[in-house]
Design a protein around this nucleic acid. Structure first.
Length: 780
DNA sequence: CAGTGAGCGAGCTTCCGCTTGACTT
């Protein structure tokens, strides 16, 4: 062995090893190998912000392996990604593995092809310390912000909370959207639609009036005037050619958005499935901010499109990224082999793959050519309005489908009632008759709440976060309970509808179903209180432009124009002063709200945040008499809980009655709601409400648990069950947490659910053991 | 293993960005 190449990802290592041949060994660093110690700040603030790095726990074994590999190599090549983090990874490797900077080669390639890699080997360089320093500044800043603000939240609001440059802005977006929705005043309006047909044919034109009415009176008056209208005709036809272009190839963020819209995947699921596709070699790297395709991919796409759809469908396109702060260390996400339109894999993988295939191929296809048609219909007599009223219908005809043959990007807009349709060919001046007309009441809609994917898009637009952190950021703010993801349905609304048919105007009433919002992000009480606190005291860090501003500094450090210590110092001095001041002067914040007076005791009732979550309280905190407390239920919030609901929470523990001459009580404990009987505890089911559950159900729960325990006792009598001896060792069947299994020579083998281990003979048992033993060794 | 919330004070919690482990019975 002569050469050791170190890359970041093991899947990449495998591919590259094939290109480089026998003289090269390729190993992976699995990302960063060193970081600031987790436990403490690990930045020497008084000593020029010197970072104290240590090898991450899960990398210790790897580092010793790499050290061994270095010893055996004549030449080491550091081939981590070509961006800030990649450069830092290379530097940490150089430091940790004690490589000589003078002889160690740094190489980069942003596509994994033989030519690109050989080209990289021929053009090595040394580590760019400016770029490394930019990363150190980024790392140190994030640590300072996160580790100095979080403890303030622990003392002023609640333990174990967190704040950070990225997560706190994500929470702010969701809180502010909710406030916007709360402020939004939904207004009713009347939309007028009608059906016409030409006098001498049975073609139908569906049209909409070019204005809305604010009141029922106006709508009704309009329909009455229309009943007397005559001379309906096509006043104007406008045909306009239009083109539509395909969307660029997928980045992490756009893949997450489309998989959410088209496949209903959460952001985390998309990344998990994409990782599987990547490891199986089906797609290129899935954490990328680049829309660039390699020459190889462009060639493949051209060939594939020409072969499948014809040469007129080919259009080679080079896309430019518009994303703020993009580092473009990788290609866009694309299939490694574009001739494979689908793959033989499990459902989720296949569907995500097909989506990636379509998007990639479409991105290299011709524009769609469309003819748009607008028709205006007028009539006599028109009232003396300032604005001329007309009915409009619009249609589209695809002249050349181009990329639409393969793929169309979805949008987040939920209201696409304006479905585009083809219009019949009719000349201008065609006389029409009015079949019917409807003026229906609608309500203006509040702005939509964020989904995981639309939040990612917003963060990306602001230049906040990176492809590798979008999914983890969402799970962090969910875990902290700053936000929740759920479905909510808005209240159904009452709508008045006027219809005109056969010269008669009729009024009917309809109920418009509530809009269902699926998998939307809502702020919690904690999220709102923390956000308000941070907005009050750390305005600059919560600023939507904070990241963009510091990124400019990092760029200047990378360009060698600024010293990273100075950049951090000018941030830290005022920041830390603010930290000290906030710690000393700001009040403890509980988001407390007075709900009213408890009629039983005459004391005040409050809703607020406590050390363990939201609670309601009867009585004053600072009085001689200790107040009474009760936790809120899931779904209740400080803002919306009523006095009655709050008082209802004090109903626990409830005594339900007697069973076997002992009291049965219900309450909520550390591990959730439970029934207590004769000194024993029985957990309530998922659908049982401790405030409502009747005695009969509680007794059922007790009986079910007793039966289960008895069954367990029975099993204990039979198991472990020796099936027989094989070559002098026992084959034993047992039942564990995950079902029945066999033990033989210290190894466990899972059994199928439908197998009764008691009826298993030794021969069948051994064949099961042999089969899964083979699988195990293959895995190793 | 079946609360807590006040107050005392011990010790705990926390960031963002790179990457994939796992043993599963």
């Amino acid at each position: 062995m002569k050469n050791l190449v170190i890359v970041e990802s093991p899947a990449k290592a495998k591919t590259i090893e094939k290109f480089l041949g026998k003289d090269y060994t390729v190993r992976s660093s699995y990302g960063h190998i060193r970081d600031l110690a987790k436990k403490e700040m690990s930045i020497d603030v008084d000593n020029n912000y010197e970072p104290q790095y240590q090898i991450s726990d899960d990398k210790k074994a790897l580092v010793s392996e790499l050290k061994k590999a270095v010893k055996e190599a004549d030449q080491v090549w550091l081939a981590s990604d070509e961006d800030r983090e990649g450069e830092a990874i290379a530097w940490h490797l150089q430091e940790t593995l004690k490589l000589d900077p003078a002889t160690t080669q740094r190489i980069v390639f942003n596509e994994i092809t033989k030519t690109a890699i050989l080209h990289a080997i021929e053009n090595p360089r040394h580590i760019d310390m400016n770029l490394v320093d930019a990363q150190q500044a980024r790392r140190v800043l994030d640590r300072l912000v996160g580790y100095e603000i979080s403890p303030i939240l622990w003392s002023k609001i609640k333990p174990a909370l967190s704040a950070g440059r990225v997560q706190s802005v994500a929470v702010r977006l969701i809180v502010e959207r909710e406030e916007e929705i709360k402020r939004f005043e939904s207004k009713p309006y009347f939309k007028v639609t009608a059906h016409f047909h030409p006098i001498d044919s049975d073609k139908i034109l569906a049209a909409e009036l070019n204005r809305h009415f604010d009141t029922a009176a106006e709508a009704e008056a309009f329909l009455k005037s229309l009943a007397e209208g005559s001379g309906f005709r096509i006043a104007k036809i406008e045909n306009r050619p239009a083109r539509r272009s395909p969307a660029p190839p997928f980045t992490t963020s756009t893949l997450q958005q489309e998989a959410s819209r088209k496949l209903g995947f959460s952001v985390a699921r998309t990344m998990q499935v994409a990782q599987q596709l990547y490891e199986s070699g089906y797609i290129t790297y899935m954490r990328t901010d680049s829309v660039n395709l390699s020459q190889l991919a462009l060639g493949m796409a051209k060939q594939e499109i020409a072969a499948q759809y014809g040469a007129e469908y080919v259009k080679t396109r080079h896309y430019q990224t518009k994303t703020k702060g993009a580092q473009e260390a990788h290609e866009a996400i694309r299939p490694t082999d574009l001739t494979a339109q689908t793959i033989n894999a499990e459902n989720a993988q296949r569907r995500l793959y097909e989506l990636i295939w379509k998007r990639t191929v479409a991105s290299q296809m011709a524009d769609a050519e469309i003819e748009k048609t607008e028709i205006e219909i007028d009539w006599e007599p028109q009232s003396a309005e300032k604005e001329r009223m007309v009915f409009q219908c619009s249609g589209e005809q695809v002249k050349f489908d181009g990329f639409l043959k393969v793929y169309m990007e979805s949008s987040d807009e939920e209201d696409d009632s304006q479905t585009v349709r083809m219009l019949p060919h009719l000349p201008e001046g065609t006389r029409l008759s009015l079949d019917d007309c409807e003026a229906a009441q609608h309500y203006t809609q509040h702005p939509p709440r964020y989904t995981e994917a639309s939040l990612v898009k917003k963060l990306e637009d602001l230049g906040i976060g990176r492809p590798s952190t979008y999914a983890p950021t969402i799970s962090t703010i969910l875990k902290r309970e700053y936000i929740i993801k759920e479905d909510r349905e808005s209240e159904p609304r009452h709508c008045t509808v006027f219809t005109l048919k056969g010269g008669q105007v009729r009024q009917t009433e309809r109920t418009e179903h509530g809009m269902v919002e699926k998998n939307k992000l809502f702020p919690t009480d904690i999220g709102c209180v923390v956000n308000n606190f941070l907005m009050d005291h750390f305005t600059d860090i919560l600023d939507y432009n904070f990241t963009a501003t510091v990124e400019k500094d990092f760029d200047e450090i990378a360009a060698g124009k600024k010293d990273w210590h100075k950049v951090i110092n000018s941030f830290y001095v005022p920041f830390h002063k603010n930290i000290r001041q906030t710690q000393q002067t700001s009040q403890r914040t509980t988001g407390s709200r007075l709900l009213g007076v408890d009629p039983a005791s005459g004391k005040n009732v409050y809703a607020k945040i406590g050390r363990y979550g939201t609670l309601v309280q009867i009585g004053e905190t600072n009085s001689d008499e200790k107040p009474r407390f009760a936790s809120m239920k899931k779904g209740q919030s400080i803002e919306t809980i009523t006095l009655e609901e709050a008082l209802g929470l004090f109903a626990l523990p409830r005594t339900l009655g007697m069973f076997e001459d002992k009291e049965v009580t219900v309450s909520i404990g550390k591990f959730g709601p439970y029934v207590r009987h004769n000194g024993k505890f029985y957990s309530l089911g998922k659908n049982d409400d401790p405030y409502e559950v009747p005695l009969e159900r509680a007794i059922d729960i007790i009986r079910i648990k007793r039966e289960a325990e008895q069954q367990k006792e029975e099993l204990k009598k039979v198991y472990p069950h020796e099936i027989g001896q094989q070559d002098g060792d026992a084959v034993v069947a047992n039942i564990g947490k995950f079902g029945p299994y066999l033990t033989y020579r210290g190894e466990n083998y899972r059994l199928g659910k439908d197998i009764d281990p008691l009826k298993l003979d030794l021969g069948t048992a051994m064949s099961i053991i042999d089969k899964s033993a083979k699988k195990k060794s293959r895995k190793k």
